[in-house]
Design a protein around this nucleic acid. Structure first.
Lengths: 237, 237
DNA sequence: CGACAGGTTGAGTGAGCTCAAGTCGGGTGG
DNA sequence: CCACCCGACTTGAGCTCACTCAACCTGTCG
């Protein structure tokens, strides 16, 4: 794995904020590094993951334009890596939050956004079947990317699998099955269209357990967005 | 399910802090309630959980004396319930953090503690087998309760199961199996002694996959506490 | 063109779920 | 006091869904 510190794109930037670029696959920070800075995605996609002793990964989140990541106490419990080429801004934790009085609401909302991200992750892992997890992941990603039904997944099947606690085989099979049932459309491995959001929502909520044909009990499926759907709030400019 | 607002034990308390008592099983706040206050456990045990549409629970954490909970953005995504009889202090979010400048470090550490709790939960759910999850849960609980090898689990098997994403049957079977292998001792359903912490640690880290006798490769098992072990930092005193 | 990474799909296995008894202890009422 | 109930827990038997192992496809890059 490559390890670069990133190139400073704006050399005139003050101590308070630095713009960085990373290539696909590069490590932004590693598990165990001192967590003195935090980051905001300008463009591209970032993943955070931690490694267990036995080597397997748990991806704790994907971060898109506007998202903040790297909010941790002392040391990073997760590493962060570029899923695609990314541009980031980096700020010092001491300066960026928790000191100047006028920035407190801002600081809170940054931390809240990190909390929301973590809760979304728990909400995915708390689902019990592969169908539920994949369906919930697709809906959450579609929502996050911009609410469109057509979405471009920047990450690989392995990333999805390690995010959902499944294998790439199961992820692939589940997606194929969803396509076969015409709930989604696979235009290519990375390009997915959601054809039947209502049914996908039912699957995510575990209501597609029995028959796959009848649309039983649509009530309750259309009300407020479920837990998993609560957007991992992007911290605004 | 009973629903009480709790009795104010200290009527002289200012707006800023109220002491409350709840009986076993009582709901402290419900999923969806406006999250205007946050809480700290004085004594007893609290669980937070959210419910999926299909009715199944995901417990997101257990909170013991000193722990802070109820830190959420606008509405509670989880409910909180008393596992045992509990005494709590409740503070307003607006007053308790994010406003007076001198309280900022405090505010940060409260939010950080919530983040740590969430990450510990993810770390448990990210493990793949029942053995790993139960072993990690026991170690984390023993660590949190006070580092002793003998621990009293205040929660039921159902609570543990819903925390780890397993069934009560699997939890029960796994504990029995650990007892059979003399890694732990079951003095009663709630009272557990950890006889072989090293081996339990290996199991938690997925290294007990093959043989159950050989203590292969103890190196790496004794160094820094693993992710799951990082204490869900108690805020306060 | 071959090498390789990413993805799909099939066959077989096994860990954990479901269904079903059965135990144990505490509370309650006759 | 005993009978009864009920909730929490344990344990067995069988099944199923997701994992493992393996083959194969596709597109990209050197």
């Amino acid at each position: 794995m490559l390890r670069l510190s990133g190139q400073t794109a704006n050399p005139a930037a003050r101590h308070t904020q630095t713009t960085l670029k990373f290539r696909k696959g590069e490590i932004i920070y590693a598990q165990g590094d001192p967590a003195s800075d935090w980051y905001q995605v300008v463009s591209g996609t970032v993943r955070t993951c931690f490694l267990y002793r036995d080597g397997h990964r748990q991806l704790t989140g994907f971060y898109y334009g506007g998202d903040v990541f790297g909010i941790e106490a002392e040391k990073f419990r997760s590493s962060a890596e570029a899923v695609t080429p990314v541009t980031l801004t980096r700020r010092s934790k001491a300066i960026g939050f928790a000191i100047p009085a006028e920035q407190i609401p801002e600081a809170s909302s940054i931390l809240q956004s990190a909390l929301n991200h973590a809760q979304s992750c728990i909400s995915l892992l708390g689902r019990r079947t592969a169908n539920e997890r994949v369906a919930a992941f697709l809906l959450a990603t579609a929502w996050r990317i911009g609410g469109r039904d057509s979405l471009n997944l920047p990450m690989t099947r392995a990333d999805i699998a390690d995010h959902l606690g499944l294998t790439i085989h199961t992820v692939s099979r589940t997606l194929s099955e969803l396509a076969r049932r015409e709930i989604i459309n696979l235009n290519g491995p990375q390009s997915i269209t959601i054809c039947n959001p209502q049914l996908l929502r039912l699957l995510a909520d575990g209501e597609g357990r029995d028959s796959s044909h009848e649309q039983k009990d649509q009530i309750g499926a259309l009300d407020c967005p479920t837990l998993a759907m609560a957007p991992a709030t992007a911290f605004g400019r």
